[in-house]
Amino acid sequence: MGFDGPGYGARLLLPGYLGSALLAALLLALMLICLFRARHGLRMPHLRRLPGIRVLEEMVGRATEMGRPVHMTPGTDDPRNPQVLASFPILRQLALAAARYDTPLLHTSADQIVYALSDATIQQTYIEAGRASLYDPEHVRYLSDNPFAYAAAVMGMFRRERPAANVMFGNFGAEALLLIEAGADAGSLQLAATSNIFQLPFFVAGCDYTLIGEEMYVAAASVSGDPMLRSTVIAQDWMRLVVALLVLAGAIVHTLAGPSDPLRRWLQR
């Protein structure tokens, strides 16, 4: 961004950020409205139950019956990636189920900070569930920040410890297929969630359940059943309507006004 760009000094926002700021402000406002309504017990629409959430409990139950562990990975990115952030509520829910069923939960990560955060999440969840003794620091493993070294370690681990269920929830690179295959080879029931469009095809083809894109964030926000968190998902749906109407309006304006297209130029200001 050039400091001496046109109109730089005279404007409040940097060039190109007007549409962004408006969208973000609108989303924030809608979320605050939904939170207000939830707090005051006002009527709210119901959320569709995602199949991916329903099976979390089933996965742990299956592992318990088979006497084998459950594995979860948040992928190979750092916690600045929103997909990795979304993995923590799922991890918490999985740890609650693991504590209830007394089944080992293996967690592997490919980023040191994610490892530290996941370790804290699991330990705290076990303490809250009254099963502090179930926490085993050796079950929470940082393997490598090199995606293929990470995949190699997971592949070896799956051959040797054969987890009955595998939850892959986060951002993955080319190593995704190696992880899917490791799980399939061990006979694991597999749930995958990612927004990475390059790896999604392999998850859809190779896993029992897949959450695509936004579904993973909605799963994360609604898995605990907390009404405040769930209410914010409603704001996302309103935003989608706004975006859809913008696209439609833009297409109509573009058809009528031709290349001069004022709406598009205004959004890109």
Binding site: G16, Y17, G19, S20, A21, L23, A24, P82, V243, L246, V247, G250, A251, I252, V253, H254, T255, G258, D261, L263, R264, L267, Q268
Partner: peptide
């Protein structure tokens, strides 16, 4: 929050095609 809205704006403006 700072950068992702630009992705949405980019996708929206990219989809404003003449019918």
């Amino acid at each position: 929050l700072a950068y992702l809205p630009r992705v949405v704006v980019g996708q929206v403006t990219g989809s404003m095609v003449a019918l």
